[in-house]
Every structure is written in C-alpha cells, then in structure tokens.
C-alpha cells in the first residue's frame, strides 16, 4: 500500500516534471516564432534596399552621379536624368508644407485652446478621417474639380497680378494649365494636414497645465500663450510632426500622378506641368521597355527611398527627443 502510494507519488512528480519540461520547450518555440517574425520585418527592409540597389545598378553604372543633375529624359535615345523628377518632388512638397504647416497649427490651436469641449472629439475625428481617404480619391477630386477650378478662377488671377511683379513674377508666369506643380502642392497640403495636425495636437497637450495656467494667470492672451509658451515648449515635437508630414508628401504617388501633368521639363513657373519621382514611376514603369529605362525608374525609386528614409529617421529622432522631455 505504502509502496504503491510512493509509486503514484513518483509518477505525479514525473508528470509534473514532464509538463514543466514541455512548457520550457513550448516557451522556446513561441519565443523563436516571435523573434523570427520581428527579424522578418528587418529582413524585408534590407530586401527592399537590396532590390532597389540591384535594380538601379545598370542606370547607376551607365550614368554615374550625373544622373542626379541631368535634366534630359529621353526613352528613345536611352538618356535618362533624374533632375526634373527630383525638382518636382521637392517643389510640390515645399508648397504642401508652406500651406499645410500654418493650417495644421491653426487647427491644433483651435482643437486644444478654443474649441468647446463637446465639439473637440467630433471635429478632431473629422480631421483625422481626411487621412483615411485613399490617395487615389484625392487624385480624382483634384483632377476633376480642383484643377479646373484653379484653371478658371485662381490661376488667371495669379498670372495677372503676382505674375506681373518682377522677380517673383516668374513663379506665376505662363498659361493656366490647371494641372501642374501648384495644384499638386495644394492636394498634398490637404493630404498632410491630418498627419501634422494630429501630432501637433498631441504634443500641444503635453504642455503641463501648470505652465499653461500660470501664463494665463499672468494676463497673457490665448495667442500669446500659444506663441510664447506652447510652441517653444513643444518645438522639438513640432519639428518631428512636420518631418513626418514631409515624408508623406515626398512619397505620395497617386494623387500627384493625376494632377502633376507628367512632363520632364523644368519650368520656373509653378503653374507649369511637371513630374515627381513617384509620378514618373507610376506612369512609366509598366510601359518602360529596355533594361536601362526600367533601371532608371528603379534608380528614381532608390533616390526617393533614401530621401524619405532620411526625413523619417530625422522625424523619429525629434519625436523621441520630445518624448524623453
């Protein structure tokens, strides 16, 4: 009797031991599954870089660094230069930032300082929903509504007024095409609005209530509190948010493809059709014949990737600094 109880006890211990061992094995398996998945994400990014480099190599080895400052883009003669798309990408993103930053800041100030409490969430959500609208819809809307509207009402006015001013007039010269750098920039501004606004609002809310209220207690107006307390306090986070928006604007494809006009010319006028890196790839990639043509488009992709990588990395760094504070 006593003996069998001892055997049963041994068995129970053995089972418990086995279970514990199993648990160790299962834990290992689970750990490696999660590790593998995390590693996959890293491998994917390396894969993206490697494939872009390999794909772009024929173009890089043919044209060398002069690819970056050659304007000519001639599929027939197989001479390709990236200057026009790079110029278009930078100018459209700049226009987007010039319009988008003040408007986003305004919305963020409205949402954190002025808006009545019950309306804050619905209005904030509505602005964030702008980010949910797919870029192709922005393109469609820009092409069929914004571009004709600008062409008929705004651009003739710009050409007639600022276009006549010496020096800056060059920016608004030429004919009102409707599509072009300015239209693409405006569409991009609307698209980056929700991104910059939501980060701006979030960092505005990190300002300690004590600081904010003591400023009000000193008799500062709302605008003075924003200008001299909130914005200086959140400076680093704001730059991060702007950079994140810039990263979006630089890489945006479909919306721009609709309204940019796809011309590899560099014209001083903001009203002229142009192209951007992403629009050139979207338009020409499936039609590109010949290794050098395809490779040049991939090289454009590589340039875009490097630019956005730098901008996003800077944005992350700034936002991380803002959080530490």
């Amino acid at each position: 009797m006593a003996l069998s109880a001892g055997v049963a006890g041994d068995k129970a211990i053995e089972i418990a031991h086995k279970k514990a061992q199993n648990a160790v094995v299962q834990d290992r398996i689970f750990y490696y599954l999660t590790l593998g998945s995390a590693a996959l994400v890293v491998i994917l990014l390396l894969g993206v870089m490697a494939s872009l480099l390999i794909g772009a190599w024929p173009a890089i080895s043919t044209f060398g660094p002069s690819f970056l400052w050659t304007q000519r883009w001639s599929p027939v003669k197989e001479i390709f230069g990236a200057l026009a798309p790079i110029y278009g990408t930078i100018v459209t993103s700049l226009i987007a930032m010039i319009i988008g930053i003040p408007v986003s800041f305004g919305i963020a100030i409205f949402l954190t300082e002025i808006c009545p409490q019950p309306l804050r969430r619905p209005i904030g959500t509505a602005i964030e929903l702008l980010a949910g609208i797919p870029s192709i819809i922005y393109g469609l809307w820009g092409f069929f509504f914004l571009a004709p509207f600008l062409q008929e009402h705004i651009q003739p006015f710009l050409i007639g007024s600022i276009g006549k001013v010496p020096l800056i007039g060059i920016l608004f010269g030429g004919a009102p095409y409707g599509i072009g750098l300015l239209t693409a920039g405006i569409i991009l501004a609307i698209m980056v609005l929700p991104f910059i606004t939501s980060i701006t609002r979030d960092v505005f809310l990190t300002v300690p209530t004590l600081l904010r209220e003591s400023a009000y207690g000193m008799g500062m107006t709302t605008w003075e509190v924003c200008k001299s307390i909130i914005i200086p306090y959140t400076r680093v986070g704001l730059v991060g948010g702007i950079m994140l928006g810039l990263g979006r604007a630089l890489g945006e494809t479909m919306a721009v493809t609709f309204v940019i006009g796809n011309s590899h010319n560099i014209s001083p006028s903001l009203l002229a059709p142009a192209t951007t890196i992403s629009a050139a790839i979207a338009n020409e990639f499936t039609e590109a014949t010949g290794e050098l043509y395809t490779s040049s488009l991939v090289a454009l992709g590589l340039i875009l990737f490097l630019i956005t990588f730098t901008v996003l990395a800077f944005a992350k760094w700034m936002l991380a600094r803002a959080e530490v504070k």
Binding site: G247, T253, A282, F305
Partner: peptide, 8 residues
Amino acid sequence: LLSAPSII
C-alpha cells in the same frame, strides 16, 4: 516601413 512610400 510604416511610412515608406507604397510605390517603393
């Protein structure tokens, strides 16, 4: 990767 241009 989250913010990389989708065309890439």
